[in-house]
Write a protein that binds this DNA or RNA. Structure first.
Lengths: 159, 159
DNA sequence: GAAGATGACTTGCCTAGCACAAATCATTAA
DNA sequence: TTAATGATTTGTGCTAGGCAAGTCATCTTC
């Protein structure tokens, strides 16, 4: 009976709320990002890159759950601003390894600092501790998936 | 010195991660929702409606942070499926009060149940307790804003 | 009661984000 | 050498959504 503990309780899915809050954040973020030449998608890419470190372009596409061709365009824009760099992989020179530049890391930190007002608006109902808890949960969830698909793609030395 | 505790620490903004995870959820949800004639946007609307209860169409637009004209179309679709109902407001007959129908509530619960696999995939790195914590934080954040803008719009009797 | 403001609705137009397909080029694997 | 793979480019199409204009019903104000 331990396996069915929540049968009579409402199911709690975070998907819709995640979507809802993400939108509210995104709408407000656009105004903050625009003057810096960035859009929300760029911020997501940079954030993911910082979280997982250098990674293959394909791995990034898989993590962002985006089509490879669109990743190219996204990275082109980021590279034009010197926020990321593409290096050829030594093991397989067809591959590009994407890495966050120092400029990129600094810019990311700067942007996050500038987003304080957005956080205050959208997460106003949460106190500092709760916001930190939320951040850590999101980060843990995001990281959990990175490893699972990165290892499946990046690792191919033995075959 | 208590007032500046985080000056030398990285700033933790949830926006980008929220966006990232929401996308992963959304992409997967589409496959689950499609057979039921729903899309992610419908789920968000229903979820918000359940969370805040009946509300003015304008208040809903404000909460969803969406253009009024698009809300009309969204509600048309939901009403066609009998998931929501529009009633004239007794106080001001120009207004529509939107409410979740019984059918809508049941459908919502059913859909959430069906989204278990999606949650497992995207939030796989979180245990049950953490997922519940995440849900509660998101709900609290979402509710915090509802009241703030609902009261500003709904309440207009005195002028 | 008349005139203007307001809420919902409709239609039309336009943009952004993104998926998908096809073709090219460099590189690696068989 | 031939085939597969990774990145890139270009083109096409779809969906979400913003924005504007115009209609109708209702409320408010004078």
């Amino acid at each position: 009976m331990v396996s069915l503990p929540a049968v009579n309780q409402p199911v709690h899915r975070s998907g819709a709320l995640l979507d809802h809050l993400a939108r509210r954040m995104r709408v407000r973020s656009e105004a903050v990002l625009a003057p810096l030449g960035l859009r929300p998608r760029h911020l997501v890419a940079l954030t993911v890159l910082r979280s997982r470190g250098d990674c293959t372009q394909q791995a990034l596409a898989a993590t962002l759950e985006m089509d490879g061709t669109n990743i190219v365009g996204l990275l082109n824009e980021l590279e034009a601003e010197n926020l990321i760099e593409r290096r050829r992989s030594p093991e397989d020179r067809r591959r590009h390894v994407v890495e966050l530049t120092d400029t990129g890391a600094k810019q990311l930190a700067k942007v996050e600092f500038a987003l304080a007002a957005v956080d205050d608006e959208v997460l106003g109902a949460l106190d500092e501790g709760q916001r930190e808890a939320l951040y850590n949960l999101l980060l843990q969830a995001a990281r959990g998936m990175e490893t699972s698909c990165a290892s499946a793609i990046d690792a191919k030395p033995e075959s």
